[in-house]
Computed example of a mutant assay.
Amino acid sequence: MTTGCGCGGGNGGSGGCGSSAKAPVIEVEVEVPLEPELIASSEQEWPIISVNGVSVTPESMALELQYHPAESREEAVYLAARALVIRELLQQRIAELGLAVEIAAGENEEEAATRLLLEREVKVPECDEPTCVRYFENNRGRFHSAPLLAVRHILLECAPDDAEARHQAHGQAEVLLLSLEENPGRFAELAVKYSACPSKAQGGSLGQVSKGQTVPELERQLFTLAPGLAGKPLESRYGWHVISVDQRIEGQPLPYEAVAVAIRTQLQQGVWQKALVQYLQTLIGAADIRGIALQGADSPLVQ
């Protein structure tokens, strides 16, 4: 059983059920075949992969596998193998160029060398002001301050993997909801009696809740609600919530000046990602890669 709901709703009634990460080499979406193609004779064997004659070992794939959760073992192995192939290509290019590495704070030698390589070989133009303004004008609906909700809840707590407890908690939440529909004034009383959240000390009040303060699965439901008692219990990893929205303050349109930096960062990141994918595809296209099918580029990006 979890302890509390992580809402921060005790101690004054502010906050919501709160949302609570080694990355494999470089995470980018390189264009690949629709179906992963690996050379392996059974699910128990690792594919036989090499990059310009250098083998990708089963041991390295087994270690990398943990960073690539997927619906099937085949897909996870493919993603792990792809990441290791990209890593090997980058390391071979670093060695080919003979880069002199200066390690910055928080980096190891490999990370520093990869950063230096990409700084040297992946050049992207800066997004200018007219481009950012045009993006803002074409996407005004996206730039609003987040709405605020004044929320009360009753948490019927249960473990996420306990199906029977979940079923019982949902039934209890439905009963409480029916009772509150008949007599909304009993919310605080029922919160004190039944809620597993510390906010019960404030009659279930979470205070004002904005986006990012609740766990994602609850937030997606919560911010669709109109003021008043929610018509059905809402489910989260912590259990079932009986919700009352006492007030909803809609977000307001933001001026360009308030979002200019965020727009520039977003657009620049998109340009960087495209340039990086193109660079990696160029390395793939020029390499002798065996045992895995990846999409490469025919013409070299970097001379």
Results as ranks from 00 to 15, higher is better:
218 L>C: 07
37 E>V: 15
89 L>S: 03
143 F>A: 04
225 L>G: 02
58 P>Q: 01
12 G>V: 06
162 D>A: 06
155 L>P: 04
73 R>Q: 11
116 L>T: 08
92 Q>M: 07
265 T>S: 14
41 S>V: 13
136 F>K: 00
3 T>A: 08
25 V>T: 14
138 N>P: 10
37 E>N: 13
53 G>N: 01
127 C>N: 13
208 Q>G: 10
122 V>Q: 05
84 L>C: 04
138 N>S: 14
257 E>D: 09
34 L>W: 15
123 K>N: 09
65 L>R: 04
34 L>I: 15
171 G>Q: 08
55 S>A: 13
70 A>T: 04
17 C>L: 03
16 G>I: 02
207 G>I: 00
132 C>S: 08
116 L>C: 11
24 P>Y: 13
183 N>V: 09
183 N>R: 11
25 V>S: 13
245 V>A: 04
64 E>T: 08
156 L>Y: 08
208 Q>V: 14
121 E>Q: 10
24 P>M: 11
136 F>M: 02
37 E>L: 12
227 P>M: 03
88 E>M: 12
273 Q>E: 15
88 E>R: 11
44 Q>C: 12
163 A>E: 13
178 L>S: 15
265 T>W: 13
249 I>Y: 10
180 L>A: 05
198 P>K: 02
126 E>W: 14
145 S>F: 00
230 A>V: 05
63 L>D: 13
32 V>Y: 05
81 A>G: 01
106 G>H: 10
225 L>F: 01
15 G>L: 02
200 K>F: 13
230 A>L: 02
177 L>A: 06
11 N>P: 07
190 L>T: 03
252 Q>E: 12
248 R>W: 02
200 K>D: 13
7 C>L: 14
156 L>H: 11
166 R>T: 08
183 N>Y: 11
144 H>K: 11
153 H>G: 00
112 A>H: 00
62 A>R: 15
150 A>P: 10
11 N>A: 13
90 L>S: 04
3 T>S: 06
180 L>C: 05
165 A>Y: 02
120 R>A: 06
147 P>D: 04
271 V>R: 08
170 H>P: 10
92 Q>H: 03
219 E>Q: 10
